[in-house]
């Protein structure tokens, strides 16, 4: 069960957008996908059409029991055309913010609570949507991950943020004996300005092949989020098929056979296909 963590301590760069876009692409490919919403703001939860949450991720983190995440998982309200598979979600509530503070003095283990809670889940792919901070929730997301995807926007301050988060990922990887590996970088919300083009090229110069194809700025993406719908539900709304196609390309990058976890995901996909 590969776990991919979507991360950046900078807010507003589109972590949730990319997480949901990848979830949609995965579901459309017949992959059983779980979205873990680690952001107390709960945008991934509401974006997947889940509004009334009885128990959120914080309860699974509280429990400390292996596999505790299973108890809080609910089916999303999405339906993706031409696919029998719908993403599931481990939802978030504002109480998660309180839990993060408690984690700091946790006598059991501050950083691998999520890893334990996600043990033995029966999914082909788990996407973890992190909060915009470098706190213990993000650290938990990275300790549970097989791969990290850093989402950013093509702008100067966002480029500074990428430097910081890559360092964080590297330090977590060292702590995990190199299991995490080099993260990927996704440039989201790419507009048509020369400044945006400049920073996209700059990311390419700095991080080379780690930079995946960008996601362009499209109104359809914002409309899908606002309506808690997958992009494919917008039908032929201008920009929606194009945006969905860009997330499919990103999903294909996730499944490029380079690492052990990708091989596992590919094997699940061939069974699903």
């Amino acid at each position: 069960m590969p776990v991919v963590t979507i991360v950046n301590q900078k807010g507003g760069v589109g972590k949730t957008t990319v997480a949901l876009g990848l979830a949609e692409a995965a579901a459309a490919a017949g992959v059983r996908v779980l979205v873990v919403d680690l952001d107390p703001q709960g945008n991934a939860t509401s974006g997947l059409g889940v509004w009334d949450v009885d128990a959120g991720v914080e309860r699974a983190l509280d429990s400390g029991r292996p596999g505790a995440l299973r108890d809080v998982v609910v089916r999303s309200a999405w339906s993706v055309d031409s696919s029998p598979v719908v993403p599931d979600v481990a939802p978030s509530t504002p109480a998660l913010a309180t839990r993060e503070v408690q984690l700091a003095t946790d006598p059991i283990g501050a950083q691998d609570r999520l890893q334990a809670a996600a043990a033995d889940l029966d999914y082909d792919l788990v996407l973890v949507d992190c909060p915009p901070s470098l706190g213990l929730l993000t650290v938990n997301g990275l300790f549970a991950a097989d791969h990290a995807v850093v989402v950013t926007t093509p702008a100067a301050w966002a480029a500074d943020g990428v430097e910081q988060i890559l360092r964080t990922v590297e330090r977590v990887s060292v702590r995990r004996g190199g299991q995490l590996g080099a993260p990927s970088v996704v440039v989201n919300n790419l507009g048509r300005t020369r400044d945006a083009r400049y920073w996209l090229e700059e990311m390419g110069k700095r991080y080379g092949e780690r930079v995946w194809p960008p996601v362009h700025q499209r109104t359809a993406i914002a409309e899908a989020s606002a309506q808690s719908l997958p992009l494919r539900s917008l039908g032929t709304r201008p920009g929606a098929p194009e945006a969905a196609s860009e997330f499919e390309i990103l999903f294909r990058h996730l499944t490029s056979p380079e690492d052990q976890w990708r091989t596992t995901l590919n094997a699940s996909m061939s069974v699903a296909g």
């Binding site: 059991i108 706190g135 590297e170 702590r175 004996g177």
Partner: peptide, 20 residues
């Protein structure tokens, strides 16, 4: 800073997972 006991970068040793 958050987790303490920072291992040296690149030494490949698994760090202690004890909390702060």
């Amino acid at each position: 800073e958050l987790l303490g006991e920072s291992p040296a970068a690149g030494n490949g040793e698994r760090a202690s997972t004890t909390p702060t």
